[in-house]
Nucleic acid binder design. Structure first.
Lengths: 229, 229
DNA sequence: ACCTGAACACCGTTCAAGT
DNA sequence: ACCTGAACACCGTTCAAGT
């Protein structure tokens, strides 16, 4: 499926090529370049024209490797998740799930566009499902039923992608300042609760600690479900 | 803030105007039209040109009401959340939170684009924060500390928007068939767990039951947190 | 005051052609 | 086999003008 369509990653005329010479194009190399672009710019800024220019080729050259921009973005998504290195399955089921989730979380934090690409399109490629498979194995061995395990995986997936998409990237000082200002502008009489905990509300808007606290709460819920079955 | 920039919703020359005559333009009426468009089409399909055409005005007319497409989308988002009718605060804190979450969930399910619009932009308008305020009130009265309450609200927000964005809309038969096929194509030796529960995995991909099961698990986690503090 | 066409600087993609 | 410019049908938005 998919990846083998490239022409082989042979360097052109091995030997004293100048450093500016680029290796032969391939689906992989183009997807790689797109991923690199997306780590530096937003998804909206990625265009076939800009990407081609960055690779030093004509725009239409890319269409020799991908049928459409959508197919290219699918490849970027695959590349991202193919690279996730699964942690060894050690410790309790809770520790195992936690590790898998954190590995995916770090990937999404490092490649902010990866989650966005996936919006409304399901993830159904082997490279990505391999991660689901590992989580499922830990849960089933711990005693979760088929339905509970499937629901748990889905909940965690929704949390991972939701967090990556709807929390200010890297919770910049800028985003915090903006939020603080917006809250300060609220009328005290209509928003007593929010204003009383404004500091904590702004802190909870993003960052590692917020992610992990939410994850731990979900794991608490899973633990309770397991105990009562 | 904002909404009062319109010129007033006066009908033009009240009287025997033909039915095709449209009421005077206003920020509200344009945002309304955009929301209607988005309920029938995807976010990608909304363009200033198409929206203007649908309203029977020139494209540039819209720029007399909104400085940019982004500002228009913000208004659509505001409109959506302004309309959420908060349920009466009755019953236990858990019932109260559950009701608020379900009301927002129904809104997002009815207006699929609303969540997408919000990706990476925080929600900080009074109409939306009013919902947060209600949730916060229930949690604080129940005894949640400032940090726990802020974290709970954030977790629930992430779940709501993550679910709306990353689960196949309305879990159509089409999406299910696609998922079933993709799973059936996996090699049995690499995906034993996934294939053993394929039916449940596909069922968990979307739908009301999946949403509510995830929500109840989060509420279980919150309950445990409250009990242990 | 309110509305707008033309124009500019972009898009993704088809097509017919270049080597 | 691999690459590509021109062209088409779109975008959001600026500007200068219309009533």
């Amino acid at each position: 499926m998919g990846k083998g369509q490239a022409t082989g990653d042979v360097m052109p005329a091995a030997g004293g090529a100048p450093e500016t010479a680029s290796p032969a194009l391939s689906r992989e190399r183009i997807a790689e370049a797109a991923l690199g672009f997306l780590d530096r710019h937003s998804l909206d800024e990625l265009s076939m024209r800009r990407l081609a220019a960055e690779l030093g080729v004509g725009t239409m050259t890319l269409y020799g490797y991908f049928r459409s921009k959508e197919e290219l973005l699918d490849a970027v998504s695959d590349l991202t998740f193919d690279r996730v290195a699964l942690p060894p399955a050690e410790g309790s089921w809770r520790e195992q799930i936690r590790e898998v989730v954190m590995v995916v979380h770090r990937t999404l934090a490092h490649h902010p566009a990866a989650a966005r690409i996936r919006a409304e399109r399901p993830i159904l490629t082997p490279g990505a499902l391999r991660i689901t498979e590992a989580a499922l194995k830990s849960l089933r061995e711990a005693g979760f039923g088929a339905e509970d395990a499937a629901g748990a995986v889905r909940l965690v997936f929704t949390y991972l992608f939701g967090f990556a998409t709807f929390n200010p990237a890297r919770s910049t000082a800028d985003a915090r300042a903006q939020a603080t200002n917006a809250l300060a502008a609220l009328p005290m009489e209509d928003f007593p609760e929010m204003l009383a905990i404004a500091d904590q509300a702004v802190a909870a808007m993003g960052g590692e600690k917020t992610f992990e606290r939410g994850l731990d709460l979900i794991l608490d819920g899973l633990e309770a479900r397991l105990a009562s079955s």
